[in-house]
Nucleic acid binder design. Structure first.
Lengths: 340, 340
DNA sequence: AGGGATCACTGAACCGGTTCAGGTCTCACA
DNA sequence: TGTGAGACCTGAACCGGTTCAGTGATCCCT
């Protein structure tokens, strides 16, 4: 069968292409009767308008892009991404937008080139940005390219030009964690964060310190890179360093590092939670399954992804620039911080 | 700045649109000099051809689709999917194809409607198909829709019409697992498979039985659904049932069920591997981190995804229908089957 | 009855590429 | 010198939608 087109439908119904188009898109300019006839015929023929023709004439791709620029190994094991992806996809599907996913290594140039190409080719109408960095070059780049974007996990502080994004109150999350540890009797804790290059890690570090100060607790900060081994090595370094004596709890920046830390504790003959308690800043199945199971902050990645996608849809649709703050995360208390 | 187009480039260079197009696409019909001038100008202007215009005139979307139709919860926790996705994406990017990802629930109608729409809209040039079912309606549907597809994990048996796909020798994998258990002294094993509706599960079940027969071992088959709880409940059912007495090892169809099984064993006061050994048919970080760590079959999801994507690219490019068999999986032996 | 507003509809231009059917020009060969 | 081949290039049609300006017809209001 030859592919149907709008011209074909028009001919069958004895009306013009324009009328068909108006009818299909719910626009005024056609009678209810005509509209029905068009819609019925389209349904009967199982016909859908060509997305590329539409994209061309509307100058709109009907897709949004997302670059995952983390270490591929990390992406594969981080359940956080997949959960977020599901939320994003669900929201986009409702808005009839496709998701263009690109995975590149840690190379920032690759990410930049991807945006340049997407913009040049008109392949996406906007992008979702993650993991905001210090002096992040991406917002300026995207502005220059004319690509609208939503910043997931935007800084609370004000920004040069207004932007759309989700914000998380990392200080509140930090307080939740620290207060829990305080209540469990810990007075000196270690905080193994992700790279400080990420703004949200800075905020977490600050939040932890502030909250600890408020409760008269001491914090040993330690920077790592989210990998399993990083968590492991950090714990080894902490324990073998001079500061160990008093740190009775460790807060890890994500679930993978928590798992690494747990392995290290076991190797070192330290018991969790008796000798050292553990908290993870991300919850996941890993935390649930570990032994001991790990107390973790549930940040609801699916919902976060959904909200970010909805913001982007709104931005593309109406140009509305807005920020939405995420609801406070919940701490899921498990065995790793059980009261001795 | 106004958006550049091919007409703009042509005017700047004083040549025709056609020549620019030929030059850009490496087609004959232009001199080397002209080609260079065009390419240089395009680079200088950071210009890329509009993907939608290209898609329209070539009648090719430049994208392939993939529907993940598993339980969203499962998708999020199954590292297998993410690994495969990374491989697929890498291969597609090399072939300058985009990936269109759609996540729908377990509802087959949703999946069908997605294909119908994609085909009607011309949104994708082909699709990747997973988890082949008994009497799978999808190949016929896609044929009817004129959408080329690659079947990942195709049946070894011959098929009505020829098709492109990857095949896995599940019997060999089964033999690897069973022989390992035999060598460890097990003579009666349980096999907790995924749903029999999946062809590959049938093949695995057959493979396990065949191999067990060959070694004079007994198999207790048990059908479950890949979820964590399913693994848990299956173990409970097995242990409380009349057959338990002699089953000294359990083979799980994926890593999640293995984890569930481990939890159940712990609850039941059974020790692993001393009382019951455990093997997982999928390897992942979960298997590595569990205690005891779980012996698992490493099936290299990244590579599998890459190969499937490459097959699809070849199919779209040259129409080549071919099947590629995956290299034999490797068993990663860990503590859950340690020699007592 | 006349004038303006509204409605239903249409022809044609347009989006930005690709591609086909020629048109020159040059060069080799008979 | 004529002819055929080949290289280089161009105008115009085409892909399949959207959208704008314009045309009749109908209706309402004074």
């Amino acid at each position: 069968m030859a592919k149907e087109t709008i011209a074909g439908l028009a001919k069958r119904l004895g009306i013009s292409k324009a009328s068909v188009s108006y009818a299909l898109n719910g626009q005024p300019g056609v009678s209810e009767l005509t509209r029905r006839r068009v819609l019925d015929l389209a349904e009967e023929l199982e016909w859908y308008p060509s997305s590329s023709a539409r994209a061309l004439s509307r100058s709109r791709a009907g897709a949004v892009g997302m670059v995952l620029s983390a270490d591929p190994l990390l992406i594969g094991t981080e359940p956080y991404y997949m959960g977020m992806l599901a939320g994003i996809e669900a929201a986009l599907a409702e808005g009839d937008m496709a998701l263009m996913l690109r995975m590149v290594g840690k190379d920032p140039a690759q990410e930049r080139r991807t945006y340049e190409r997407w913009a040049g080719e008109g392949k996406v109408d906007g992008v979702l940005l993650f993991d905001h960095l210090h002096d992040d070059p991406r917002p300026a780049l995207l502005d220059r390219l004319g690509l609208p974007f939503v910043l997931h996990g935007a800084p609370e502080a004000e920004w040069g030009t207004p932007f759309s994004g989700t914000t998380t109150d990392h200080a509140a999350d930090a307080a939740t964690i620290v207060e829990h540890l305080h209540q469990r009797g810990h007075r000196r804790i270690a905080h193994i964060s992700g790279p400080r290059a990420f703004l949200h890690e800075e905020e977490r570090i600050r939040g932890v310190r502030t909250s600890a100060d408020a409760h008269g607790m001491e914090v040993v900060p330690f920077e790592a890179d989210y990998a399993l081994d990083a968590g492991h090595d950090a714990v080894v370094a902490l324990v073998q360093g001079p500061v160990h004596r008093a740190a009775t709890a460790v807060v890890f920046g994500n679930d993978l590092m928590s798992m690494g830390g747990l392995l290290a504790l076991r190797e070192l003959g330290l018991r969790c939670p008796d000798d050292v308690a553990v908290v993870s800043w991300d919850d996941s199945l890993h935390c649930r399954l570990a032994s001991p199971s790990v107390t973790a902050l549930f940040r609801n990645p699916g919902m976060q992804g959904r909200v970010a996608a909805e913001l982007l849809l709104a931005l593309l649709d109406t140009g509305d620039i807005q920020t939405r703050s995420m609801p406070r995360s919940e701490l899921v208390v498990r065995a790793s911080t059980a009261p001795d």
